[in-house]
Amino acid sequence: MITILFSNVLIVGGIAFLSALMLYFISKKFSIKENPVLDKIEKSLPGANCGACGKAGCKNFALACIVSSREEFENLYCPVGGAETMQKVAKILGFKAPKKEPQVAVLKCNGTCDNAPIKLQFDKIISCRLANQISVGQTECPNGCLRLGDCVKVCKFGALKINEKTLIPEVDESKCTACGACARICPRGLFEIRAKGEGGKRVYVACNNKQKGALARKNCKAACIGCMKCAKICSQIQIKDNLSYIPSDVSAEKYGEELVKNCPTGAIILKNAQSKKEHS
């Protein structure tokens, strides 16, 4: 009995030992030498593999950083990690980090339930991209939000959600990394990645409607009608196709309140006006 037990232990132990030896040699022989710097850079990246930098995943971005020259590195930027991450990467490589303002996604539509009432019923359409192909949308605004939430589904950071009261998506500033996935998926291009602004204070036109004033107003109370009032306040503001565009370098501090006050339809939105006041 003892001998059987003993021989069993020997045989099984022997197999285990041999296998261990084999594994050891194989791992030695076929090991892949990884660049330690690459590993280091990859670790300092967010690891979301979102593709916002324009590369396919974080590893590819790290690779691009390594092979880049000093000038090329200036153009590489991880919008998710932001300046902090880029500083880390630059430190590893001995470069200077490119300076970029923190950015955030903004929705260029204010077609809420109140502003743009529902005129048509969507019957279980699963995606904005499909709805955009077949119809003008529930509000009949050809440029407005379709309210089906493709952007919410594509956001990897949970920064977007459809507000149940207004039915349009809302950006959660604290979570938004400005990766641009929403801007890419929105069939009507309603998201703009723009600078967060000083203290988060920013002013923009929350409308994308390019129709003439009367037509635009028919479907949405908050539509930009291209009335030129904002352009008179600040010369940087341009009106094109009956639609005003406020460049991100227009100071929200300086013009913000005046612009909002003077917009006859309420298409111009000033974000974080209150919090800024508390600071100052």
Binding site: I134, S135, V136, E140
Partner: peptide, 9 residues
Amino acid sequence: ETEAASGYF
């Protein structure tokens, strides 16, 4: 610009 069947102009 006039509305077509899809509602687009």
